[in-house]
Design a protein around this nucleic acid. Structure first.
Lengths: 140, 140
DNA sequence: AAGAGGAGTTAGACACAGTCCAACCGTTGC
DNA sequence: GCAACGGTTGGACTGTGTCTAACTCCTCTT
């Protein structure tokens, strides 16, 4: 996995490239998301951003995440009924979800091929194909 | 698509086969789910069951859906961040989700092949593979 | 027939993710 | 200095889903 080193400057440049005004809070949130390549939920991001003292409000976190989504900086991963994960990796790839630990891992798309998907009706545009491999680690 | 005709008796038999005590409410909910082959959310099921007069409480609907899940009568489909769909079809198959209409359609699994999924770590058991083709019908 | 017991159901309170809104803040331009 | 505007904020609000303690219904026993 190619982990990129993100400096404050490279993050700002990235925001600018995606037409996002780099404010203090947005840089903090971008740092939380891109700093570690992990998949985080909104509340985990809040916790990271407000680590020492509370600095950024819940509204801003949600506003920013939705802005990042819109501007295609990040991706939404819907695997758990009670929280959405945000994925800093926008390259096409798939996911492995462990329902017991709640951990979400990437699967490289280049290794996987899907064939035989049906023709879509006219006027319909594909947004993407999500593949989620669901596993359990704990015995039951 | 093979649509099966469900009589009250066949539903009761089905519940029994899956080790579920067939009470009045459970039969009603099973009827709502299996009567039409559609994917419904909990509130849609509530609306169907309580069509004329309110008969079944929210708690019972959720209890029953979770019981059905546990007993493998139905499957959960997580595609929308703010509601879970319940799928009466437990055969392996995939889904097409239209984010604009909120409609969820089946894709026959026999036509689709996925190859190249990575080896899983030891002690981890695959629960299933979800494939969701996300589309938009509305122009933006 | 009466009562005990257990499974199932219920209303309503609750938990929690996410949205909305109106007030506020900070920067820029004049 | 001050207007304007984008961004942020707390707090109220919404909607799914869970919890709980009381209640109903059915069956079994005597």
């Amino acid at each position: 996995m190619n982990r990129i080193q993100h400096t404050r400057e490279s993050l700002i440049a990235m925001l600018r490239r995606h037409d996002v005004n780099p404010t203090h809070q947005r840089i903090e949130i971008a740092y939380a998301l891109f700093g570690h390549g992990a998949h985080l939920s909104a509340d985990q991001i809040m916790a990271r951003v407000n680590g020492r003292h509370s600095e950024t409000s819940k509204a801003t976190v949600y506003n920013t995440l939705n802005l990042f989504l819109e501007k295609q900086l990040i991706r939404e991963v819907i695997v758990d009924p009670n929280k959405v994960f945000y994925d800093p990796n926008t390259e096409p790839h798939y996911h492995l979800y462990d329902a017991d630990t709640g951990e979400l891992t990437d699967i490289d798309a280049s290794e996987v091929t899907i064939s035989g998907l049906p023709q879509l009706p006219a006027g319909v545009v594909t947004e993407g194909v999500d593949v989620i491999v669901r596993v359990r680690s704990r015995l039951r």
